[in-house]
């Protein structure tokens, strides 16, 4: 290992980044995946950046038209935030179901996306909420969608080693409800075998303008347009059409894979559970008159 830096600001980080040139860089957020990957085996050339000291990477704020979410916010801070629960419910669900208490206390939302595991929990929730990632690098600031960050390859994001995810902007959409759920091998401390996030506009028992993202089908967040269409159908057809669309989609994503029959069945379970959650949340928000769920 050549060096360890803990920059106090984005500006300092960028300056240090410029200095370190072509050396192998490790950007460490919560470190929960990084520790397992490296197991302390670092090359002589490795330069480590501890991202935890930059205030720009922190904070959960309601900015009227959108939510600002610092990339270094942890799963625990996210699922215990009332603002997130109200305006980004699917993300709250995902953060609460990830790992164990100890992991949730360290693991960050930015790290979860950057790690790009197909079984990651928060990317599908961020994607369904239409979140955009604000990325900084030596060449400046740019805004990317969750899918653009994930790219086509599992376990590898599209960012360069000098890019840093600073924050997420999650649009606030009135009258929308969202939910996330996963199925793993156990009820807790479990890696998802399949997960799904759904958001939709809710009115009098009907959904419209739905978004559906599925994790674990080769990528952390795959959009499923046919399931979105199915959700807008009338209530008598909705559930079955939703399930059919999901199963067909799984067949297209992982054709012939031995896990396919199980994933189809699990997607049907998720479909039932998520519909129930969305309906319940929709009714609750109509009742309370609070209509700014996202």
């Amino acid at each position: 290992m050549k060096g360890l830096f803990a920059p106090q600001s984005i500006k300092e980080f960028l300056a240090l980044l410029a200095e370190c040139g072509k050396n192998e860089k490790h950007l460490i957020a919560g470190g929960t995946d990084w520790l397992i990957k490296t197991r302390g085996n670092l090359s002589e050339e490795a330069v480590l950046f501890d991202l935890s000291k930059m205030p720009e990477l922190r904070g959960i704020e309601n900015k009227e038209s959108f939510l600002r979410l610092g990339s270094m916010e942890t799963m625990t801070s996210i699922h215990s935030s009332g603002v997130i629960r109200l305006h980004a419910t699917a993300l709250s669900d995902a953060a609460a179901s990830m790992g164990s208490v100890q992991i949730r206390n360290r693991a960050t939302v930015g790290g979860n996306l950057a790690n790009a595991s197909p079984a990651a929990d928060t990317p599908s929730a961020l994607a369904v909420l239409g979140a955009s990632a604000v990325v900084f690098s030596l060449s400046g600031r740019r805004v990317l969608s969750v899918e653009e960050v994930l790219g086509p390859c599992p376990n590898k994001n599209t960012l360069s080693d000098s890019d840093i995810i600073m924050e997420f902007c999650i649009p606030l959409r009135k009258e929308y409800v969202s939910a996330f759920k996963k199925i793993g091998s156990r009820s807790e401390v479990s890696i998802a075998r399949v997960n799904m996030a759904v958001s939709a506009r809710y009115e009098d028992g009907n959904f419209s303008d739905a978004r559906v993202f599925i994790g674990t089908l080769g990528s952390a967040a795959k959009r499923c347009p046919s399931a979105e269409t199915a959700l807008s159908m009338e209530t008598s057809l909705r559930e079955q059409s939703f399930k059919d669309a999901l199963c067909e989609f799984a067949g297209q994503m992982i054709p012939g894979r031995s896990t396919l029959p199980y994933k189809k069945s699990a997607l049907m379970a998720l479909a039932e559970d998520l519909l129930e959650m969305l309906e319940e949340r929709g009714r609750a928000s109509e009742k309370s008159g609070e209509k700014s769920h996202g």
Binding site: I183, S187, Y262, S265, A266, M268, A269, E272
Partner: peptide, 9 residues
């Protein structure tokens, strides 16, 4: 038994 997820509680 959840017959869709196959999980047993």
């Amino acid at each position: 038994v959840d017959k869709l997820t196959g999980l047993v509680k």
